[in-house]
Design a binder for these strands. Structure first.
Length: 329
RNA sequence: GGAGGGGUGGCCGAGCGGUCAAUGGCAGCAGACUGUAAAUCUGCCCUCUUCGGAGUUCGUAGGUUCAAAUCCUACCCCCUCCA
């Protein structure tokens, strides 16, 4: 990270921990068994640190000369951006965390993105110097797209693993929209399919590669959100994109029946649906031909109401991929 | 503490009294082309709008001026060097 971290309150931290645990629960089992995962809070040991003792016992093992050579630090200095002492200490604390984890839980390997390489090695070295422990680091390259961009940007922003940040449907869509050139690699990285099967999928050419993308979306969504959610998303996608119809499971926003009877201007409805963040944006979207009601162009000021209900819902579309159903509450 | 440089829209970065809601690039959104792909081209990209305009922006607060992102003062914050 090369930008200042935000200070978090205790409540923020507790909230974040709960969120992190919820995500990891999908992939790990927490418990007391020999192979179960344990979630710990480094405040358990960091809060008790005595400054002078810490400096004397651990601080002496860190050379500022060396810390200044770290990429994250160098970047900040080169750009003449601020780097507080608090942040400068982050790598020391991370190293100490590794040591504490080794002492308390017999943890011997730390994994992370390649940007963590230096930080993790600091811990490895600290373990050797202080406890004569042998610790290990394992890092993976940050995943980039074939086009060179960093992965993780979707139409709505970041790709979140929490369902309340990014719905299973949007998560499925994210994978479905993978670039051709990334499909094989992503199947290997993000699914548990056998490699020979992936090789076959990857060999698909042109429009056929879409089948591979569906498999990728299904598998990735299944791992995170479960079978049911994955299948539902696949079915919703099939009906929406392949049949051009209206699937019941598209994201839905409800509006009080009375308001709908009275009629709501189209631009306002797009804002309500979350398809635009301001009235002006909604207007521009519709004017530019990117906003549709029940798959048909409309005027941005047209009143949308009960007359537009089809099977109990009004389908709003922004662009080709974002659809929202409006239902009366 | 002293000297110098600087804080501009999500980010980078021009502007340095009026023609500035503010060049350009990136990111984002939409249209065309397609395969829910990429690349490319086009449009949009502060808020509101009865589409004529209106209102709020250029660290914060004051001031000068007919007019300020641009000048002055104070304050806050950042960077560099000196102590």
């Amino acid at each position: 990270k090369d930008e200042a971290r935000k200070m978090l309150t205790d409540a923020d931290i507790a909230h974040n921990m709960a969120g992190i645990r919820k995500v990891f629960e999908k992939f790990l089992s927490f418990g007391n068994g020999p192979t179960d995962a344990v979630m710990v809070n480094n405040a358990d040991w960091l809060d008790k640190l005595q400054y002078i003792d810490f400096l004397r016992d651990y601080g002496r093992h860190f050379s500022v000369n060396r810390m200044l050579t770290f990429e994250s630090v160098k970047l900040r200095l080169e750009r003449e951006q601020p780097l507080s002492f608090l942040e400068f200490n982050y790598m020391i604390l991370q190293a100490y965390d590794f040591l504490e984890l080794a002492r308390r839980h017999g943890c011997t390997i730390q994994m992370g993105g390649s940007d963590q390489w230096g930080n993790i090695l600091n811990g490895v070295e600290l373990g050797r110097r202080v406890d004569n422990r042998e610790l290990f680091a394992l890092t993976t390259p940050l995943v980039t797209l074939a086009s060179g961009a960093k992965m993780g940007k979707s139409a709505q922003g970041a790709v979140w693993l929490n369902a309340d940040k990014l719905s299973p449907w949007d998560y499925w869509q994210f994978w479905r929209n993978t670039e051709d050139a990334d499909v094989g690699r992503f199947l290997r990285l993000f699914t548990e399919l056998p490699l020979d099967e992936i090789a076959k999928l990857e060999a698909l050419k042109d429009a056929e590669i879409n089948e591979a993308k569906k498999v990728l979306a299904n598998e990735a969504a299944r791992l995170l959100h479960g079978d049911a959610a994955a299948q539902e998303s696949a079915e919703t996608a099939r009906r929406t994109f392949e049949e051009g119809g209206t699937a019941d499971n598209l994201p839905t926003v409800t509006v009080p029946g009375a308001e709908l009877s009275a009629g709501i201007p189209a631009y306002a409805l797009f804002v309500r649906a979350g398809l635009a963040t301001s009235n002006g944006e909604a207007r521009r979207l519709i004017k530019g031909g990117g906003g549709k009601v029940n798959d048909a162009a409309i005027g941005e000021n047209d009143a949308i109401g009960t007359a537009h209900l089809r099977d109990g819902a009004i389908k709003l579309t922004a662009g080709k991929k974002r659809h929202v159903l409006i239902r009366a509450a």
